[in-house]
């Protein structure tokens, strides 16, 4: 079974804060990490390989520093990893990113049985790249997957559970297919010491736009319909922030009065 996993390097947004004085993003010392959802994607690929055999290919498009996340993938057990990096990719929106990643999958993996992505990246937060790659590859997509119930290689089919607003949808699809996974799906493993050593020494192939045969009008800023015009910090909600002070036996009825006055409680 040939599995391609797409991973993205992202800033650790839990560390990102807004400086209230300058109103800018404070990201000093903010580490770059593998997009958390993509760790579940890698883990799921490894689990499938353990059960059905095959190869796990991990791909990341990004600046040269993104090599780090690919090393992590190698350390946990990916068979092959590839960095796609070119100045011409800079400024890519989701349309151009999906095009580039799909082109890479075709160029280095060839005919895949399964592509696995994270549900969304925690920086761009769009959840659009997965469906974009599936569409470019001409394969069905199964988004928000929380469980793989069955893979039947002979019949070329997969059954998964998708986590939606109102519950779980069980869907059957033909293979090859693309999944985007949520964090309920597994518990990512930690790399072994041996794995880390191996990864540190590994030579990671870097592909350029030319290597993947990309159309220059479909990559980077040039291939991107959307344009981020402005970035700013979110407005604080103007809550009146009335903290009701006093002893609880007085404060509680006071709050109840205030809420009853709104007439929202029927």
């Amino acid at each position: 079974m040939k599995i391609a996993v797409c991973i993205k390097q992202v800033p650790d947004t839990t560390d990102v804060k807004i400086d209230p004085k300058t109103n800018t993003l404070v990201r000093e010392g903010v580490a770059s990490i593998t997009n958390p959802f993509d760790e579940y994607a890698v883990e799921e690929a490894l689990l499938i390989r353990e059960k059905h055999g095959g190869e796990v290919h991990v791909i990341s498009m990004g600046p040269p520093q993104a090599i780090e996340v690919l090393k992590n993938a190698l350390a946990v057990g990916a068979d092959k990893v590839y960095l796609v990096s070119d100045r011409a990719f800079a400024g890519a929106d989701t349309l151009a990113t999906a095009y580039t990643v799909a082109k890479t999958i075709k160029a280095v993996v060839g005919d895949v049985d399964l592509v696995i992505c994270g549900k969304q990246a925690i920086d761009g937060d769009t959840a659009q790249v997965g469906p974009g790659i599936a569409t470019r590859l001409g394969i069905p997509q199964l988004t928000y997957v929380s469980k793989i119930k069955e893979i039947n290689l002979e019949k070329k089919k997969i059954v998964v559970e998708r986590l939606l607003e109102y519950g779980r949808e069980v869907v059957e699809s033909s293979l090859p297919a693309l999944l985007t996974v949520v964090k309920d799906i597994n518990e990512p493993r930690l790399p072994s010491l041996l794995g880390i050593k191996k990864a540190a020494k590994a030579q990671i192939p870097t592909l350029t736009a030319k290597d993947i045969g990309a159309d220059e009008n479909r990559i980077g800023l040039k291939g991107s319909p959307t344009w981020v015009m402005r970035v700013f910090s979110p407005e604080a909600r103007g809550g009146s922030g009335e903290i009701l002070k006093g002893e609880l036996p007085e404060v509680v009825p006071l709050l109840v009065n205030k809420l009853m006055d709104t007439k929202f409680i029927k």
Binding site: P11, T13, T14, V16, K17, I18, L25, I122, D123, D125, S224, P225, T226, W227, V228, M229, R230, V231, F232, S233, P234
Partner: peptide
């Protein structure tokens, strides 16, 4: 960025 920033986006 997990709600840490807002962005205004326009199409070409």
């Amino acid at each position: 960025f997990g709600g840490n920033i807002m962005a205004t986006i326009q199409d070409y």
